[in-house]
Simulated assay, not measured.
Amino acid sequence: MPQNIHESVSRLRTIRDMVRWAMTRMESSEISFGHGTDDTWQEATFLVLRALHLPFEKLEAFWDARLTADEIIKITDLIERRVTEHVPVPYLLHEAWLVKHRFYCDEDVLIPRSFIAELLEDQLAPWVQDPEAVSSVLDMCTGSGCLAILAAEAFPNAHVTGVDISPKALEVARVNRADYEMEDQIDLVLSDLFDMPEVKTKKWDVIISNPPYVTTAAMESLPDEYRLEPSLALEAGFDGMDVVRRLLPEAADHLTENGILVVEVGDGREAVEAIWPDLPLTWLTVSAGDDLVFLATAEDLKRYFKH
């Protein structure tokens, strides 16, 4: 970091001082949000507290805590990387939070975020009437493994399989699986959808997926923060449906008789309905609306794709 930056923060003493300075730096920059925070207040408080390994929900308890010189240098360096290099905070800290769960993340995976996480908090009710009766779950395009872990918690008797095409992503998923001590409950498989033998012949009660769904055109206008994420986890062709277009017909063969498929597609509802106008889909309500995540039953998928 330039010497003048360190000189400018030489009089900062407390967490309150550091958060205020961080907000000023962020407000004067052109950073974008959306990786767990929505504004400079959330971004600054999260960055400062978690860089110090403090619980961000207890800000008031530490508000006037004094920082050491080394802590001030560490945090100001992180802030400068955030505003000058546009590195998302979860990559700076190697930490992201999703529905009150902490996950390790780095530049090899999409930063954990999915509206399916909200649905798993409710154990996919009312579509799953007895969560303890679910014996198998597949998380297709698992990335960091965050949804696989949430599914394992939601369905305690289920064996969960996380599948991804990226070996590096699966390395991150293994870290998170170990952090939650779920090595016996979660298998992680390298496969392009259902191609590999470990998944080719299996069936699951529940399949969830947050696949790539960003259109080629939209990729060109993404903020710098999103460009630091792996394009493999984002880009999905001219209509954003390259992966989903393959997933649905194949999923019909990999669901148990009463199984369900839950897929997040962002703003891709129009594209989905254009591809399969007569396929019965239920669009589920999440915090951001009712056109981001759909559910299909095994019965409807098999009938539609004539499996």
Rank of each mutant, 00 (worst) to 15 (best):
I5H: 03
S8F: 05
R11C: 08
R11D: 15
V19W: 00
R20V: 07
R25S: 07
E27T: 05
S32A: 13
H35W: 06
Q42S: 09
E43M: 06
T45E: 06
F46Y: 14
R50K: 14
K58F: 13
K58W: 13
F62L: 04
A69Y: 06
I73N: 07
D77Q: 15
R81Y: 08
V87T: 15
V89F: 06
V89I: 15
H94N: 14
A96N: 01
V99G: 07
K100W: 10
D106G: 09
P112Y: 02
R113S: 04
E121K: 14
P126L: 11
V128G: 01
D130R: 12
P131Q: 11
P131S: 10
S135M: 11
G143F: 02
G145H: 03
I149V: 13
A152P: 02
F155L: 07
H159S: 11
I165S: 05
E171Y: 08
V172H: 00
V175W: 02
D179G: 08
Y180I: 08
E183R: 08
V189R: 07
K202Y: 13
D205F: 04
I207K: 00
N210S: 12
P212V: 00
M219R: 13
Y226W: 13
L228C: 09
P230E: 14
E235T: 13
D239N: 12
L248Y: 01
P249R: 04
G259Q: 01
E273Y: 12
E273R: 10
W276P: 01
D278H: 12
L279C: 00
T282R: 06
S287M: 13
S287K: 14
D290I: 09
V293D: 01
V293I: 14
A298E: 06
R303W: 14
H307V: 15
